[in-house]
Write a protein that binds this DNA or RNA. Structure first.
Length: 837
RNA sequence: GCCGGAGUGGCGGAACGGCAGACGCAGCGGACUUAAAAUCCGCAAUCGUAAGAUGUGAGGGUUCGAGUCCCUCCUCCGGCACCA
């Protein structure tokens, strides 16, 4: 054994050992151990990894190794989300084929992820851009098509000048592209959609099944789905009798409607307005609105504006035929019915609008004091109260009236109970080359015809022309486009849109289970056995993209009968991002190339070793929170490993060659403390990992143990019991650290001649209860709740004995002098609090 | 506005209602060294010479005892939103 910590020599050695012995190769058909599917979100192969990516894979590796040591058959696979825009942009910019660019990036990133010592079953490696994989992505599309979930429609889509059309989930709240940050416009296009709206209720309800998910992510998905319950009430245009349906969550205020607000692009306007005196004014207003960029239109600052249509509507509840119909800028057409009933007295937006344009106000909910009147009010009253001016509902509590008023409308035939969702159907098509072709043929006779499953994959041609800077290269590839209709055999054209990369990454966890199956996407029995994923690890930025889409696709496949599970991920851990201060402005930013604050693992691994990088990454802070990478702070973990190595080196010369039971009676007090601390640490480390993957505190405890080991000063002159203890300490520390710093752990395990070979086969150590026993306890003394000192007492004293000893102590005497003791609280073995006045 | 999370030393952060600041970084002192680095030993919340007092965003409350539980509020982060 070398004297200095030889990370350069040992790390490649053990990495090779894990490969050679198949440590991470998973036999999915082995039923002798319980299964554990540990999955980290697979990366997009953008080129190089930084230490922020590493946090994800390192945490997954610790969990994988810990679960292996605690007796599970662990599946830990890895792959590449390798379709997508950056490869296509690289092709245009550097004149390199996206396939070549992608494959080279994968090779580089694979090298990096292996250099961290992260263990995967590489036999299951997948890349979504390989025909062997995307063949089955196309199959997934066809299942959706068969169920009627995939459909085409002409619709306004979110259009990014660089990334083409986007799903709603890819547009930020302020109207920018999540990928490239450009402003998003609306464009009318015929597109392939997935009917996620049909699954909205199930996706919402099943969030309750996901107990192992962070509350935050469940909330985000619930927000995104955006279910609201209310009523749809049909008003009628007074002048023409046209239906004018509104959706409202507040039917209790319906007698207070004084105007109606309609979205500028609502179809009803096209019917009503032509030829009326108001036509020009409305048109001018609508055009002006259309020219405001989305980002600005959505900002809070935008003032409420509108223009009167000249028409009125009639309230079916009270026959009020004088309700003005206004086109406004604060109603959107794709939510509800695109028409909103406005009640100025009980909605602040309606209040503002009515005030601006002098529209009447009518009070329908009175406050408990009975003091409200439209003449004296200065803002909308949005609290609860009792109905007034509401016909037969007067006097009813407004909460109760919601149900009663809707029911009355239902009975009369002009209202219905409805549920509204915010979520919109998912646009899965992209006008790009580097994706899985949508397996559809457009036939002049038969329309859109799905490619039969036995003709998959629809291959992406290699010989495409990226030179022109316009449009999808596939759409210009005659050899690809021209085909025959699978149904009637007539000449036909292939669909030239490709599938969004999100769809490729929605089912990859199923493919890993049976990655080399060339007959089917996966074997159903195997997937039923291995799903759901037991632990999924990744970034929270996928909360409403990948994580929602994956849940959706699993439900589709469940409906198609392809698998039994209804939810893909039993437990989800969203790790925090690694940030670094920018040298330019001193602010913290997520690591990224554009900010220029990335830290490459390569140099660090060269200088300190992979184990140190792993240790620092895990020690940096609570794993679920963002953390700041500080270049100097890596010293601590490095010093710790050097110290551990040195201790082991010194120990090797004195300890017995094999494990020997520790004779506890023969230990001196410092050694006894070490023995206790060792097993306390084992208990604590296990607990830290089990309860929320708190690796930072697990490592802190190991560092404490090392400090106590120093104090015990066990050397050549120590007793045999102490030497046995020293051996047990080093070997147990190696086992506890095996998931965290696997290379040094393996090396120490081997150096100390431990069996079985390979520390991953060693099992997780067991706590020795006898070692934990304490003979003397430090009892905290409090007077009136304030800490005043401590006394050492033998363990096992009764409540009375403890109290007597405490009251006899100097500290208690001193601080109770001149006071009468009113009460004494005794927490046996811990604390005595004397209450005195 | 609604929902979720978080506020603790110079910094990252510990603390299942019971010793606030574990562990680490940076810092200070000492040993070793011609010297430096590395290493080892020690000191470190604030005020105070000390006894002690004050301290976990602010203010109340519950409790023998509150960073932790309850109420009100402030700030920051994340999600949703002129959503009817």
């Amino acid at each position: 054994m070398e004297e200095k910590y030889p990370f350069h020599a040992i790390e490649p050695k053990w990495q090779k050992y894990w490969d050679d012995t198949g440590t991470f190769r998973c036999d999915t058909r082995d039923d002798s151990k319980p299964k554990f599917y540990c999955l980290t979100m697979f990366p997009y192969p953008s080129g190089h990894m930084h230490v922020g990516h590493g946090r994800n894979y390192i945490m997954g590796d610790v969990i994988t190794r810990y679960k292996m040591m605690t007796g599970y058959n662990v599946l830990s696979p890895m792959g590449w989300d390798s379709f997508g825009l950056p490869a296509e942009n690289a092709a245009k910019k550097f004149h390199v084929h996206p396939h070549k660019w992608t494959i080279e990036n994968i090779a580089e990133m694979k090298r990096q992820v292996r250099s961290w010592g992260v263990g995967y079953d590489w036999d299951r490696e997948i890349a979504t851009c390989h025909p062997d994989y995307y063949k089955w992505t196309q199959w997934v599309f066809l299942q959706a098509y068969k169920l009627g979930v995939a459909y085409q429609k002409e619709a306004p889509v979110n259009w990014c000048p660089l990334c083409t059309n986007l799903a709603n989930e890819e547009v930020t709240a302020d109207g920018h592209c999540v990928r490239c940050g450009r402003p998003v416009e609306k464009k009318n296009l015929k597109q392939w959609f997935f009917r996620i709206t049909q699954y909205a209720d199930r996706l919402l309800k099943d969030l309750d099944l996901l107990e192992g998910w962070p509350e935050k992510v469940r909330q985000m998905q619930a927000n995104w789905i955006g279910k609201s319950k209310g009523a749809q009430v049909t008003f009628r245009v007074t002048e023409t009798g046209d239906e004018c349906p509104v959706y409202t969550t507040r039917p209790d205020t319906i007698f207070g409607v004084t105007f109606m607000a309609i979205a500028p692009d609502h179809p009803l306007l096209k019917k009503l307005l032509p030829g009326t005196p108001q036509e020009a004014a409305v048109k001018e207003f609508t055009e002006r609105l259309a020219n405001i960029p989305a980002a600005e239109r959505l900002s809070d600052a935008l003032a409420k504006e509108g223009v009167f249509t000249g028409f009125h509507v009639t309230n079916p509840y009270n026959g009020d035929s004088d309700i003005q119909l206004w086109v406004t800028n604060y109603v959107v057409s794709d939510s509800g019915t695109g028409i909103v009933m406005a009640v100025p007295t009980h909605d602040q937006r309606d209040w503002d609008f009515a005030a601006k344009y002098g529209i009447p106000k009518k009070l329908v909910i009175q406050n408990p004091e009975g003091t409200l009147s439209p003449e004296t009010m200065t803002a909308a009253y949005v609290e609860d109260g009792v109905l007034v001016n509401s016909g037969k509902f007067d006097g009813m509590k407004n909460r109760d009236a919601i149900q009663a008023i809707t029911q009355a409308g239902v009975d009369a035939g002009f209202a219905e109970f409805t549920t509204n969702f915010r979520i919109r159907d998912w646009n899965v098509a992209r006008q790009r080359y580097w994706g899985a072709p949508i397996p559809i043929v457009h036939c002049p006779h038969c329309g859109a015809v799905p490619v039969p499953e036995d003709q998959l994959p629809v291959r992406l041609p290699d010989d495409v022309d990226f030179a022109a800077d316009q449009g999808n290269p596939l759409a210009r590839h005659e050899g690809f486009i021209n085909t025959v209709c699978p149904k009637c055999g007539a000449p036909a054209k292939r669909e030239t849109d490709t599938l969004a990369q999100w769809l490729c990454s929605c089912w990859y966890f199923l493919r890993y289970i049976d990655a080399r199956n060339d007959k089917a996407p996966f074997d159903k029995a195997l997937v039923d056995k291995w799903m759901p994923v037991d632990q999924y690890i990744g970034g929270v930025e996928h909360a409403v993209l990948h994580l929602l889409y994956s849940r959706f696709v699993v439900k589709i496949l469940n409906d198609a009968g392809a698998l039994d599970c209804v939810e893909p991920f039993r437990a989800l851990f969203t790790q925090g991002m690694i940030c670094k201060r920018s040298e330019k402005d001193g602010k913290l930013y997520k690591m990224s190339k554009s900010v220029g604050n990335v830290v490459s693992p390569d140099e660090l691994i060269e200088n300190y070793g992979a184990d140190t990088v792993r240790l620092y990454t895990l020690f940096i802070g609570p794993p679920e929170l963002d953390a700041e990478w500080q270049d100097t702070a890596i010293q601590g973990p490095y010093r710790f490993l050097c110290r551990l190595w040195k201790k082991a080196y010194e120990a090797k010369a004195v300890v017995p060659a094999a494990d020997t039971p520790v004779d506890i009676a023969a230990l001196n007090p410092a050694e006894r403390d070490l023995f206790r601390k060792l097993h306390q640490t084992l208990k604590g480390v296990t607990d830290s990992i089990e309860r929320g993957f708190r690796f930072n505190t697990a490592i802190a405890q190991l560092m404490e143990l090392m400090n106590v080991l120093d104090k015990a000063k066990i050397g050549p002159d120590s007793s045999d019991a102490a030497k046995a203890l020293l051996r047990e300490t080093i070997v147990t520390v190696a086992r506890m650290m095996a998931p965290i710093t696997p290379h040094i752990a393996e090396e120490l395990w081997a150096e100390f001649g431990c069996t079985p070979a390979g520390i991953m086969n060693a099992g997780w150590p067991k706590v020795n209860e006898e070692a934990l026993r304490e003979d003397t306890l430090q009892i905290v003394l409090q007077v009136n709740g304030k800490m005043r000192g401590k006394i050492a007492l033998p363990a096992g004293l009764s409540r009375e004995e403890t109290e007597a000893a405490a009251r006899a102590s100097e500290e208690v005497k001193r601080f109770t002098e001149g006071l009468t003791v009113a009460k004494v609280i005794v927490v046996p073995g811990k604390l005595v609090n004397v209450v005195a006045k």
